[in-house]
Every structure is written in structure tokens, then in C-alpha cells.
Design a protein around this nucleic acid. Structure first.
Lengths: 209, 209, 209, 209
DNA sequence: GATGAATGAGACTTCATTCAT
DNA sequence: AATGAATGAAGTCTCATTCAT
């Protein structure tokens, strides 16, 4: 029976993944999820307490992995920032910690491309921590960039009039990531595009301020 | 009574603006709009036939203005594209027609910042032309950039592996605009930030491919 | 001011007449009545307490006149019935009291054709005595016919298996009247058609049982 | 569960039948239907998509059967009419095709008396083909009678002043049918009364013009 | 008297969730 | 475990009636 159970569970998860992806959390229908999974509606509730739990089952681990990485990068970033005066980083090679973030995201994408997209772009209305994932990601990138990029610019005597431009840049970059995820489910093409995106966004960035 | 009428109308519009902004079209509640406007539910329908009409009253004129500009820019852009072989544009000065688009958006922003944001980011589910505004804007920018930027790059012997990167860039830029709108309701600060955003995105862009 | 008042009142009544006729009581809209009368909605309620009162103002006198006649005919009919054994009526000339009913109806029609139609056919949902007018009329006709026609038939040795057929005949006849009223607003054509209808229904009726 | 389902379905249908019969389509309340069926409101929508579908479930098959017959009779009637000059029908035996119509109606009545009544008399406002059933029936009868009866009268040198009298007769007859349906739910009594009604309406009709 | 904005109950309908089998 | 019927709250919208001006 354990075998059957897992098989049903996976059908539900697969069906839910598709529904959440195409409809978003709020407009996703439990009925449709059950139907597409060829499972009775009530049975979905045997496996998952409610819509939120089902959503959690799909994106929870991806969320945890992502948040952990974010915090880790933030922690290291902060440390680096403290050491900054002794060891300025080149903007050419390191892009201020973005690589770490991106490699985390790419790692997640390999197997959980859609879950990541749902988390970032389809979680509106789910009334839980997940709803803020995209914002958290943007904030984290913003923070890292402020710590590092702004210091670099300051060293180069370049004045940044309104630091909110960094936030906007972060948000735009994350949106770029989302669009790549929307278009490509295949990991390798994602990687190529993300690399291009990083270059376009951050190469020689100091010269554009 | 005329005074009262306008006052109530404005309360409804204000309440609706806030509700649509925070909830999006689909999740916005007519009940809540009425309540926040301190007006009986039925009275909202005295002023606006239905939810769609209320939405239309908020964003309709902004939409018309925006679409007109988009079509105008596309028309001119197409003409330029046809003349392209004789007179290549510099990417430094013109930024490929983005300035025209942005000046339109800035004009709208001066007085209808939030309406524009709703149109671009909160219209999902409204089942009308408004629903696609953001996509239309991105597509238009994508088209302009393909026409002009890709030709410039080709002339410079720079090969673009996957032209979808242009679309991603367009979407990211529009997202940047949205974020500026989200943050600043004041027109002049918006203008400064948008100018910075254009520079960061498009200055020397050829060198980053 | 009295002049104005009557003028407005008449506009309301005229508008209401048209609305009740085309929509029936339940589906008639007070808003439309006010609008068509070029009168503010609230003002309708100055002249008439509510929808029922407005309906009453239109059809009340017609109803009273009709009911009075019905009762009168019933009373006489009953008297005739009691005298019946001494003075049998011919079915050819008298049609069992139908002429009296019809002449009442025709009298009403001359000036209140539409009111009569509304009373008979458009009063559903008004939750008052008016709602049953048609039924009352049918019942009255049924009663008269039972008193007289059935006795005549019995005298002629004709057995009527199920006396309910008399009720059905009455209802059909009244329906015929309603259709004439629906089609013709002009009194003289109504009269001609009603006479034909009486003939078709009641001439030689004994021979058709 | 299958038992339960049918039982509930029947309760809903029964409750709806009663509500539509007494209130008519427009004034029928889904809440009341649910309540009288001892079922949650939402559950009614589990069985029937909406009010119209519920109405359709009640009267749809009856409507189809009726319309099919009407068209069939019209088709045959037309053929007869074309052959008329060579073979005039007696009004005594055939009653101009009414028998065919009536036998159809009687067949329907045996099991779907109330549904037929609702279709003919309570469908106002349902915004579908059903709304015109009674009118269709009257028109069909009117057409048949004009084709045949009026020709017969003409042959007999009887002049019909206003042919609308035929329409009135048709409508009255249909109303008679409706009244029989209203009174008797039992099929055999219906048949007897309808036969009487036909005789009273159409026997020797030429002599009454 | 006159205006029309304002009210609120009730209409149909949807859907996440619960429950009886 | 599995089913899908059943529930009920909340959604949008309508309309007779009331109320402030």
C-alpha cells in the first residue's frame, strides 16, 4: 500500500505543480488538481491538510534551501564587508557575491525549476512566508550589492545619488531570472542565459553610474 | 448634493485604487472597497456599473494614453528600421527609442503613478484589454530593441547567441520601471531614477554582449 | 401647484401603465417608471407609498368596478337560478349571463383597456387581492355557467360527465378576451371580436356536449 | 452513495418542480429550492450548474418531444394543405390536425404533466428557447387552422371578417389544455377532458362563424 | 415638492473544506 | 485509503425603498 500511496501522492503533486504554475496560488483550484491527478477530491485532503499544506509540500524544501543560501551569503557578505578595507574585491571577477547566489539558484533549478518559479512568481495570496520569497531574494541581493558595490563605487569616487537604484537593479535582475525560468525548463540553457544576464547587468557596472 | 456626490465618488475611487493596488483585480473585494470608502455596497454600483467599470474608471485613460504612445513609437520605430541601412543610429545617444517610451511613461506618472502601476502589475483576471498591458509594453520594447540593437550588434560583428536575451532585458527594464513606480509617487524623483536606470541598462550595451 | 402636481402624477401613471403592461408587476422597475416619467425616483414615492400603491392607483378603480359587476351578476344569476324552474332561458339569446359580464368588460375597456389587461394578466407577484382577479373572473363565469348552462343541459337530457369542463371553458373564454385586449386597444374592434368570440364559444353549445 | 445521490437529486428536482410551478422561472428561488429539498444551497450546484440547467433538466426532454411533434405536424399539415384542392378534409372527422397535436400532448402528460405545464406557463424569464414554447404551440395551431379551417370556411361561402379570431381560438384552446393540466395530474382523466374540449371547440365550427 | 444618492436585503454563483460511506 | 456528496462563507450584483438636501 505504501507503493500505491506514493504513486497517488506524486500524481497529486504533479497535478498541483501544473495548476499552481499556470494559475497562481489564489486561482488554483483544488478540484482541478484532484481531477487532473485522477484522484477523488477528498483524498487530496488525506494527503495534504489544505491548499496551503499542498503548496508547502511543493515548494517548502526549495524555499528552505533558498533561504538558507540567502542567509549564508548574507552572513559571508557581511563578513567580507567587514574585511573590506583590507581586501577590496574586483567587480570584474566576483560581481559582488552574485555568483554565489546564482549558483545556488542554478543548483535548485536543475531539479526544481518550476517550484522555484512558483515560489518566486505564483505565490501571491498564499498567506505565508512563501508569499515574500521573491521580495526576500531581492532584499538579499540588494543588501549584498549595497555592501559591496556601493563601497567599490565610493572608492572610485563615484557618487551614487539615490541608493534605491541598487534595489531596483536587484529587482530587475531577479525578474530576468524569473523570465528565464518561465521560458526554459531545461537546466543547461538556463545556465547559459543566466551567465549572459549577469554579464549584461554587472560587467563594468561602475562605468555606468 | 453635487459636492457630496463628487466627494463620495472620490472616496470610492480612492478606496478602489488602494484595494486594486494591494490585492490585484481578481482578489480585490467590492465589499471591502465599499467599506473602506464608508459607503454602502449598493452605492458603489450606483456610481460604477460593475467591478470592471470601476477598474476601467481608474485605469482607462492611462491605458489609452499608453497604448497610443506605444503604437506611435512602434510606427516611428518601424520607419527608422526601414531607413536603417543608410543611417545607423548610435546606441549612445538614442538608446533605440527607449527615450520616447520613457518620456511617455514619465508624463503619465506625474499624475497617475498608481494607476499605471495597477495597469502594469495588478490587472490579472480583469478579462479585458487591460490584462495584457505589461506584456504589450514588454513586447513593444522587445521589438524595438530587436530592430535596432540587434542590427547594431551585428554590424559590430558581435554575435548574439540567443535573441531571447533581448526579451529578458526588455522585461527586466519594465520591471525596473514598475519598481520605481512602486516606491515613488513623486514625479521628479521618478524621472531621475528612470534616467539612471536607462543609463545602467543601455549605456555601452554592445560591450557587454 | 396643484396643476403641476396632477401633470406629474399623470406622467407617473402613464409611465407605470406602460411598464406594468410590458413587464408585469414583478419585473416592473420603479427606476424605469420614474425615468420614463421624467421624474426623480424619490418623487414617485411622494405620490405613491410604494410599488403596490402605484399599482393600486392604476388598477384599483377598474378592479372595484369589475368586482362589483361580478358580484352583481352573481347575485342576479343566483336569483335567476332560483326562479329557473319557472322561466328557463334560451341559450341562443342570453348565453347564460355572459352578455352582462361582457357588457361590463366592454364598458371598462372603452377607457381602461390596458388597466384591465394588466389586472387580468400582469398582476402576478403583487401580493394583494389584484393577483387573483383573473381567477375571480373565471370563477364567477364558471359559477354562472354551472347555474344556468348545466341546468339547461340537464333539462335537455344531456349528461355532463365532468363539470370541470365548464370551468375550463370559462378560463378559455377569459383567455380569449385577454388576447383580444392584448391585440386591440381600440374599443370598437374589441367589441366586434368579443361578439364573434361569444358566438363561437356559446352558440349551440348544448349540441356539442 | 449512489442511492443517496439519486435520492438527493430527486429531492432537488421535486423541490424545483414545485417551486417553478408555483413561482415561475424568474421568481423561483434557488435558496428555497435547496431548503425545501433539505440540501445545502451549494449542493444544488453540485448537481446542476446553474438555475437554467436545473430548469433544463426538468423540462428539456419534454420540450424536445413537443417541438419535434410540432414540426412533424406542421410538415404534414403543409403537405395536406398543398393537396387540399383535390381532397378537402371534413371538419367533422379530422379537426384540422388538432388530433395529432393533442395525442402528442397526451403522451407527454402521462408522465410529465407538471413539466409540460411549467414549460407552457411558467418559463417567462428563462432566456432560452423554452420561453417561447407556449407561443410556438399557439402559432403552430394557428397556422394549421388557417391552412385548413379557413379554406373550408371559404369553400362554404362563409366569410371570416378578421382572421385574428383564429389566433384567439388557438390561444384559448391551448389555455384550455393548460387548465386541464393544472387540475389533473392523472393521465386518463386528462384524456377524457381533452377529448371533450376538442369537441366543444371544433365540432360544427363552420356553423358558428 | 423634488432630487437622486444611499441603504441593505436578497438574488445567483463559486470554492475550499468536511463528512458519511 | 478512497470517494464525491455536502456544507457554508463569501463573491458580484440588483432593486425597492429611505433619506438628506
Amino acid at each position: 500500500m505504501q507503493y500505491l500511496k506514493d504513486e497517488v501522492k506524486n500524481r497529486i503533486l504533479g497535478s498541483a505543480l501544473a495548476e499552481f504554475k499556470s494559475m497562481g496560488y489564489s486561482d488554483a483550484s483544488m478540484r482541478k488538481i484532484a481531477k487532473d491527478a485522477r484522484v477523488a477530491l477528498g483524498n487530496v485532503y488525506h494527503y495534504y491538510t489544505n491548499k496551503q499544506e499542498l503548496f508547502n509540500a511543493l515548494v517548502g524544501s526549495v524555499y528552505d534551501r533558498l533561504i538558507t543560501s540567502i542567509q549564508e551569503i548574507n552572513r559571508i557578505g557581511l563578513k567580507d564587508a567587514n574585511e573590506y578595507q583590507f581586501m577590496p574585491k574586483s567587480d570584474e571577477t566576483g560581481y559582488y557575491g552574485i555568483n554565489e547566489l546564482v549558483s545556488t539558484l542554478l543548483g535548485i533549478c536543475k531539479e526544481h525549476n518550476i517550484e522555484l518559479l512558483i515560489l518566486l512568481d505564483k505565490s501571491k495570496g498564499c498567506k505565508s512566508k512563501y508569499e515574500d520569497t521573491k521580495q526576500d531574494l531581492i532584499d538579499m541581493l540588494d543588501e549584498v550589492l549595497r555592501d559591496k558595490m556601493l563601497r567599490n563605487l565610493k572608492d572610485s569616487q563615484i557618487e551614487v545619488r539615490n541608493p534605491y537604484i541598487v534595489y531596483i537593479l536587484s529587482a530587475s535582475f531577479i525578474e530576468g531570472l524569473c523570465n528565464i525560468l518561465r521560458k526554459y525548463e531545461n537546466g543547461s540553457e538556463v545556465k547559459l542565459l543566466v551567465d549572459e544576464l549577469i554579464t549584461i547587468f554587472f560587467k563594468d557596472i561602475a562605468s555606468r553610474f
